[in-house]
């Protein structure tokens, strides 16, 4: 793809932001795919996030925004129990997936992660070939697949990477550009056929063109998956998200520790155009954060 088409796509995507009508057009689904009920997250005694309530609906993109240290990544990582890997991390309240508490006593974190995939801030392909990067998930999960080749092609196609890599599937994934690596990571996530894809600032290490490609891709993926994205970039949230949750950090009166709180959650258009909370308005308009 050459630069001029990229620019054309860029302006089109940016321009279309204002015309997307959110809110009333969205179907209100009965049970959210992921639902947080009075969620507090601790690292040992430190309360990182306090009393968060919101839900992510099927085939929607939910954006979590807010200043650094507001706990949005912590919340995202608690959705597929990646926080379990951090010593001392603890979740109070309930996070449910189709009504099932994912921190319930019988729940297997491995199964949760298979259904709720994750794309990380920095592209993290495995030190393997492009093909093996995609095939890794199905293999470790013991998925019964008729043809691994077809599955790899499908995942790469869905991640809009197939045309660029189809002739070098056996080459190391490290040879790809940053943007390609990130799409490879998305393809790798898709390959295990999850229902939800969590994205933790997926574009923060990418240039604007690669960023737009990922954003376009997210709009495509939205048809099949439920996406939750953490982003520092408010324009990105405005461009891609159906609903937005605005978090901020509040210092405790006694200890001075900063705890993340959910300020406002709603349709992206409402959050960006007519926020109910003063803090949201200040952040959106750039007066704070």
């Amino acid at each position: 793809m050459n630069a001029s088409t990229d620019n054309a796509r860029a302006s089109q995507t940016v321009g279309s932001t204002n015309t997307i009508v959110h809110g009333s057009a969205l179907p209100s689904l009965e049970v959210p795919v992921i639902d947080c009920d009075s969620v507090s997250i601790f690292y040992d005694d430190f309360r990182a996030v306090h009393d968060v309530n919101f839900g992510c609906k099927r085939n929607e993109i939910t954006a979590l925004i807010g200043p650094s240290g507001c706990g949005k990544s912590t919340v995202l990582r608690s959705f597929n129990r990646m926080n379990d890997l951090i010593e001392g991390a603890r979740v109070e309240g309930s996070i449910t997936y189709h009504g099932e508490d994912i921190y319930g006593p019988d729940v297997d974190a491995i199964e949760v992660r298979r259904r709720i995939g994750m794309v990380f801030q920095k592209p993290n392909p495995f030190p393997k070939s492009i093909y093996d990067n995609i095939a890794y998930g199905p293999r470790v999960n013991g998925m019964k697949v008729e043809s691994m080749d077809d599955l790899v092609e499908e995942a790469l196609t869905k991640a809009a990477l197939w045309d660029e890599v189809k002739d070098k599937l056996k080459q190391s994934a490290f040879g790809l550009s940053g943007g390609q690596q990130q799409r490879l990571c998305i393809a790798r996530t898709i390959a295990v056929q999850p229902e939800v894809i969590l994205m933790d600032e997926p574009c923060s290490a990418l240039d604007p063109i690669a960023t737009l490609r990922i954003e376009d891709l997210m709009q495509e993926l939205r048809k099949d998956y439920t996406i939750v994205i953490v982003t520092h970039n408010m324009q990105q949230a405005a461009r891609v998200a159906d609903r937005t949750a605005f978090f901020t950090a509040e210092a405790s009166d006694t200890t001075g520790d900063r705890t993340g709180v959910l300020v406002e959650f709603g349709d992206t258009a409402t959050i960006f155009e007519s926020p109910h909370d003063k803090r949201t308005e200040d952040y959106i308009s750039g007066r704070f954060g």
Binding site: M82, I110, R114, N124, F126, V140, T189
Partner: peptide, 21 residues
């Protein structure tokens, strides 16, 4: 650590992560 996280995030067990990655 990102490699381990990537592996766990596609549903690999910790043992699979060590053994295969």
């Amino acid at each position: 650590a990102e490699i381990r996280q990537g592996s766990l995030a596609v549903g690999a067990t910790p043992l699979q992560t060590v053994w295969r990655n």
